[in-house]
Design a protein around this nucleic acid. Structure first.
Lengths: 170, 170
DNA sequence: AGATACATGTAACATGTTACATGATTTA
DNA sequence: TAAATCATGTAACATGTTACATGTATCT
């Protein structure tokens, strides 16, 4: 139930509407746990029904602002400390590598070269994001910065690996 | 539809039963695209119904051996060359990092230390796998070796990042 | 003879994606 | 006033997980 906890986590920072949370998913969480508009609104309704969040205000255009309850915060802490990430991460990019033998060496190299290029673009994108953020010294910045560093290292590793792999194909 | 193509890919190497494929998922594809027994049998039935594979032999205990058809191979090649991996990979491990601010610094450090330890175990596991495989010079070994190298680099990056991150928490 | 491995299939449920449906407010 | 953005909700479908259900062959 990661989506549920992603929402609780975002709401632990400040109250927000479904629409606000959707934007937060698109920006900060997109690379860790993408979610659709449909999923977010549905899950918020369930969270409110179970008392982990409450509708703390209503605004124009039917806007509903959700606030984390003490029970919601407890659940978030419980998830972080008492449970372990279990899902193996899936990578369609890596899956394809297993089967490159059915292509010609040129086609396989093209595939790997494109991975390297996409990794480089991803890296540059995160660099721009890094520059645009005001990295103050608060808690949020510390962990946001750590997550960003993960992305930078991930893309670097990807690029270097794809370049190396491309060279392996003779 | 990655599961479908993962099955076609494995069958491009040699004919296999659902049970054989299940074992192949557990060993070679586990880290790229995990699949359950239930999923595999269901998808094989669908693949046979659409003619991308055929039941080429039946053995003891109701064993059905599936073989890739020319149409299946064409579909596999089409997937590899004409479509792009789209799904963003999800990482519950990374997702949690965003919310470590709700824990005490000690708890956050523990979380990151455990990631480093798990990454190291994963690395060691792949090293053992590497040693146990007979790396001949055929195509399959080349791409299997490239996928394995991905895993080794991935775990190394994970460990180094988690160690670095742990040090960031003062 | 009993345990383990081989072997398949389905049902119920959880999660995730795409498309549809509607409307209010702000900005150019 | 037209376009863009804000704002929510649901239905249909695809994918993935867990549990149940059954039986055969091999190995110790």
């Amino acid at each position: 139930m990661s989506l549920r906890h992603a929402l609780l986590g975002l709401l632990s920072e400040r109250p927000a509407s479904g629409y606000d949370l959707l934007k937060l998913f698109e920006t900060s969480l997109a690379n860790a746990w993408p979610a659709t508009q449909s999923q977010i609104y549905t899950e918020l309704t369930k969270l409110a029904a179970t008392g982990l969040v409450t509708v703390s205000a209503e605004g124009p255009r039917g806007r509903k602002e959700y606030t984390l309850t003490p029970e919601g915060l407890a659940e978030l802490r419980h998830w972080l400390t008492e449970t372990k990430p279990q899902r193996n991460s899936r990578s369609e990019t890596l899956l394809r590598v297993f089967f490159l033998g059915v292509l010609t060496p040129d086609q396989a190299r093209d595939y790997l070269t494109e991975i390297a290029e996409r990794a480089d673009k991803g890296y540059q994108g995160l660099r721009l994001l890094e520059e645009s953020v005001d990295w103050t010294d608060d808690e949020l910045s510390v962990y946001g910065r750590i997550a960003l560093e993960y992305g930078l290292r991930f893309h670097t590793m990807h690029r270097e690996w794809a370049e190396w792999a491309s060279d392996q194909i003779s």
